[in-house]
Measured scan of single mutants.
Amino acid sequence: PDFTLHWNGITIHFKGIDEEQFRHLRELLDRGVSLEELEELAKELIK
């Protein structure tokens, strides 16, 4: 499924991740993950 997340004025689209992965990403963003960390995470998910 696809998810869209609005965070700090940025709209991020996640394609092909499951709800569990999306929930994990939201928790990280709510905790204050940096954009660099988010990019690293995205690379991991894409593999």
Rank of each mutant, 00 (worst) to 15 (best):
L29N: 02
I12H: 03
Q21G: 09
V33E: 04
R23F: 10
L25Y: 04
E27A: 13
E39N: 11
F22I: 08
G32E: 04
D2L: 11
T4D: 03
H6C: 03
I46S: 12
T4R: 04
I10L: 08
I17F: 05
G16D: 15
D18Y: 04
V33A: 14
L41I: 15
L5F: 04
G9K: 01
K43A: 12
R31I: 08
I17V: 06
L5Y: 02
L35V: 12
E37F: 10
E40P: 01
L45D: 02
R23A: 12
F3R: 01
I12Q: 01
L28P: 00
E39V: 14
P1I: 14
H13R: 08
P1H: 14
E20P: 07
D2I: 14
E37L: 11
L29E: 00
I10Q: 09
I46M: 11
L25T: 00
H6P: 00
K43H: 10
H24C: 12
S34L: 07
L5W: 01
D18N: 13
T11V: 09
F3L: 04
G32K: 03
E40A: 14
T4Q: 02
D2A: 07
H6M: 08
I17D: 04
E40S: 11
E20F: 11
E19K: 07
H24V: 13
E27N: 13
F14G: 02
L35R: 05
L38T: 01
W7S: 08
K47Q: 11
E19I: 08
H24A: 12
L45K: 05
F14R: 00
A42M: 12
G16P: 08
H13Y: 06
I17S: 03
E39P: 05
K43P: 07
L28G: 03
F14N: 01
G9C: 03
G9T: 01
G16Q: 05
G32A: 07
L25A: 02
D18C: 08
E20S: 09
H13E: 14
K43E: 11
A42W: 13
E39I: 15
W7K: 13
I46G: 13
T11C: 08
K47C: 09
E44V: 06
F14S: 02
F3K: 02
E39A: 14
T4L: 07
V33Y: 12
E37K: 12
G16A: 03
E36R: 13
H24T: 14
L35A: 05
I17L: 07
H13I: 15
S34E: 05
L38I: 15
D2W: 07
I10M: 08
L41H: 07
H6G: 02
T11R: 02
W7H: 11
L45I: 13
R23Q: 15
R31S: 11
W7Q: 07
Q21M: 10
N8L: 04
Q21R: 04
R31D: 07
K43V: 07
H24D: 06
K15V: 15
Q21P: 01
G16H: 08
H6I: 06
H6R: 05
R26W: 12
D18A: 06
E40C: 06
E40L: 14
L29Q: 03
D30V: 11
H24S: 09
I17Y: 02
Q21S: 12
E27Y: 05
E36S: 13
E37Q: 13
E27D: 15
L28A: 13
K15C: 06
H24L: 14
H24K: 13
N8D: 06
I17H: 02
T11F: 03
E40G: 08
E27R: 09
W7N: 02
R31W: 09
L25F: 09
L38V: 14
F3C: 06
E39H: 13
A42P: 00
R23G: 09
F3G: 01
I17W: 04
G16E: 14
T4P: 00
E19M: 05
F3W: 09
E40T: 11
F14K: 00
H13K: 06
R26V: 15
I10Y: 01
H6E: 14
R31F: 08
G9V: 01
D2N: 11
L38K: 00
D18L: 06
E37C: 04
I10H: 11
R31T: 12
K43W: 04
D30I: 10
F3H: 04
N8M: 07
I17K: 02
L29G: 02
F3E: 00
E19V: 06
H24F: 12
R23L: 14
H6S: 13
A42E: 03
L45C: 03
D18H: 06
K15H: 15
F14Y: 02
I12A: 02
Q21A: 12
D2M: 13
K47S: 13
P1T: 14
P1E: 10
F14I: 15
D18V: 04
K15Q: 15
Q21D: 12
L29M: 07
E39Q: 14
W7V: 13
L41C: 03
E36A: 15
L45T: 07
K43Y: 04
H6L: 06
V33P: 05
E27G: 11
I12K: 03
S34N: 05
L25K: 00
E44H: 13
T4V: 11
L25V: 06
S34A: 09
G16I: 05
F14P: 01
I12R: 01
I46Q: 11
E37A: 12
D2P: 06
E40Q: 12
L38D: 00
I10W: 00
I10S: 05
E44P: 00
R26A: 13
Q21L: 11
E27W: 04
I12L: 09
E40K: 15
E44R: 11
L35T: 04
I46E: 11
I46V: 12
E39M: 15
H13M: 08
E44M: 09
E27F: 04
F3Q: 01
N8W: 01
E39S: 10
E44S: 13
T4C: 08
P1F: 14
L29D: 00
F22E: 04
S34F: 08
T11L: 05
K43G: 09
R23H: 15
I12D: 01
L28H: 07
E36Y: 07
L35D: 02
I46P: 11
K43C: 02
L38F: 10
H24R: 10
E39F: 15
H6N: 12
L28V: 07
L5N: 00
L25D: 00
D18S: 13
I17E: 04
E27P: 01
L35G: 03
E27C: 13
I12G: 01
L38H: 00
P1M: 15
K15N: 15
L25M: 06
K15A: 15
P1N: 14
G9S: 02
E44T: 08
L41Y: 14
G9D: 05
I46W: 01
P1W: 09
N8T: 01
E39W: 14
T11K: 07
N8P: 01
F3S: 00
L38Y: 02
G16M: 02
E20Q: 13
L41E: 03
R26Q: 13
E37H: 11
H24P: 02
G9A: 01
E44Y: 02
L29H: 04
V33I: 11
K47N: 11
L29F: 14
E19L: 07
D30K: 11
G32F: 09
I10K: 09
D30R: 09
E44L: 07
L29R: 05
L5S: 00
F22K: 06
L35E: 02
S34Q: 06
G32M: 08
W7L: 13
E40N: 11
G16Y: 08
K47P: 09
T4N: 04
I12V: 10
E19G: 06
A42T: 06
E19A: 08
D18P: 03
V33D: 03
E19D: 09
R26L: 15
S34M: 06
L25R: 00
A42C: 10
L28F: 07
K47M: 08
G9L: 00
L38A: 03
E36D: 13
G16V: 04
D18F: 04
K15W: 15
R23Y: 10
H24W: 13
E39T: 14
A42K: 05
L35Y: 09
F14E: 01
T11A: 04
E37N: 07
E37G: 05
L35S: 04
E36V: 12
E40V: 12
F3M: 03
T11Y: 03
G16S: 05
G32R: 03
L38Q: 00
E36N: 11
F22G: 08
V33R: 05
H6V: 14
E40W: 11
R23K: 15
F14H: 01
V33S: 13
D18R: 03
L25P: 00
P1S: 13
E20I: 10
L29Y: 06
I12F: 03
K47D: 10
L35H: 04
E20V: 11
E39R: 13
W7M: 09
A42F: 15
K47R: 10
D30S: 10
W7E: 03
E36H: 14
H13L: 05
K47F: 03
L29A: 11
E40F: 12
K43S: 08
D18T: 15
E40I: 14
F14L: 15
L35C: 05
E20G: 10
L35Q: 04
I12W: 01
L29V: 08
F3D: 00
D30G: 09
N8C: 06
I46Y: 01
E44D: 12
R23C: 14
L38E: 00
D2H: 13
L28K: 05
P1C: 08
I17T: 04
L28I: 09
G9I: 00
L28W: 10
N8F: 04
N8Y: 03
D30F: 09
D30C: 06
A42S: 07
E36P: 10
L28C: 05
G32H: 06
I46K: 06
L28S: 07
E36K: 13
L41F: 14
F3N: 01
L45N: 06
E19C: 05
R23T: 12
R26G: 09
D18K: 05
G32T: 06
I10D: 02
I17R: 00
R26F: 08
L41G: 01
A42G: 06
G9W: 02
E40R: 15
A42V: 13
E44W: 02
D18G: 07
